[in-house]
Computed example of a mutant assay.
Amino acid sequence: MIIKKSPAEIEKMAAAGAIHARTMKLIASKIREGVSTAELDQAAERFIRSQGAVPSFKGYRGFPGSICASPNAMVVHGIPGPYRLAKGDVISIDIGVTHEGWVADGAVTFAVGAVTPVAAKLLEVTRRSLFDAVEQCRPGNRLSDVSHAVQQTVESEGLSVVRSLVGHGVGRSMHEEPQIPNYGDPGKGPMLEPGMVLAIEPMTTAGRHMVRMGDDGWAIYSQDGSLAAHFEFTIAITADGPRILTPWHEGDDGL
């Protein structure tokens, strides 16, 4: 069942989302050669807690980190640790914030210094596919219109959508119905209605779409070792159109 939120509840989610966006901007300021993913995790946790919120991922199904930090061929669910960023890396930073019982979820893939043309294209196209998906988050559209928008943007550029991982509903729980694939024909699935809140998250690779599980049981990698990217917003469907509740893109810092 898709749990719709009242306007007041969406405002509470937006408050969590504002903390999320500030956390992402803090992490963006720390992305540089030599920084460890553990150091990024510690900075995020300290800041989230300073805002009266908690990191949603910490302890979720046993996950040990406060954020997911997934470099290069790792698509998602990277456990922060000793890995130090190197020039030319790309790294997905996925952050969940819970504030007063409401969850906000979002991700950005960052370039560490100058990256290859392939990496730059992957990040630009994946980010663009997220915004194209957001444009479909309007009452009267179907859920698969969102999915199709991602696929169309990504595959038209010769890149691949990871098919075994999905976005999801979000609210008081990290994962609610519905599941949101990043591919599919338009015009199918539930009709979008005001009050639905969705975590839309294109996950892509520069190679093929297949993935594999890492030895730690959490990290998911592109099967062929190609670079991966991941961008995510929490989006509320409103009568006036889509409302981005995790606005990490706002401002002039290049996110």
Rank of each mutant, 00 (worst) to 15 (best):
S156L: 09
K188W: 10
D94C: 09
V112G: 01
K188S: 09
F233T: 01
G207S: 02
I93N: 04
R138C: 10
F57P: 04
M210E: 12
R32C: 05
L192V: 07
P181T: 08
F63L: 06
P117T: 01
A21H: 04
R46M: 03
G96P: 13
M196Q: 05
D41M: 03
M213L: 15
G158H: 10
T234R: 03
F131A: 12
A73W: 02
I48P: 00
E39F: 12
R46L: 11
V112A: 02
G52D: 06
Y221H: 00
S173P: 01
P242D: 08
T109R: 04
N182C: 14
G78N: 03
P64Q: 11
K12H: 14
G81C: 01
C137A: 13
R127N: 15
N141H: 12
D105R: 01
A228N: 08
R138E: 10
G251M: 14
P181I: 06
A28D: 14
G101C: 09
I95G: 02
W248Y: 15
A239V: 08
A8I: 08
I180L: 14
T98A: 14
I79K: 04
M1F: 12
G195V: 13
Q51T: 07
T246N: 07
S144W: 02
D216W: 08
E155V: 13
L192K: 00
F57Y: 15
M210Y: 10
Y183D: 08
L130K: 07
I27M: 06
P247R: 04
G207R: 00
L85D: 08
K5C: 06
G184K: 05
P7C: 12
G158T: 03
G254I: 15
F47G: 02
S147P: 08
H148R: 10
V90F: 05
E33L: 08
A133P: 07
H175M: 09
V115L: 00
H99V: 05
K121L: 11
V146Q: 05
I79S: 07
A114R: 08
F110M: 05
L26R: 06
K58Q: 08
S156Y: 04
V108D: 07
S156H: 09
G78M: 00
I2W: 14
L255I: 15
T37I: 01
K58P: 03
A107P: 01
G81M: 03
E250F: 12
P82V: 07
D224L: 02
I237G: 00
P181M: 05
T234A: 08
Q152C: 04
T98Y: 10
D185I: 12
P190M: 14
V35M: 11
R49E: 13
L255Y: 05
L123H: 05
D253A: 14
F110A: 03
P71L: 13
V134E: 09
G217A: 11
A69G: 01
A28Y: 10
L245T: 11
G113C: 12
E176R: 04
V154Q: 03
W218E: 05
L143E: 00
I200Y: 02
G171A: 09
V54C: 09
P190D: 11
S92F: 02
I237S: 03
M213W: 13
M1S: 15
D240W: 02
E250K: 14
E33T: 08
G158D: 03
G96R: 01
A228K: 02
A69V: 15
V162A: 04
T234I: 13
V54L: 11
V35T: 13
G62H: 08
P202F: 02
V166I: 09
A119I: 07
R46I: 11
G113I: 03
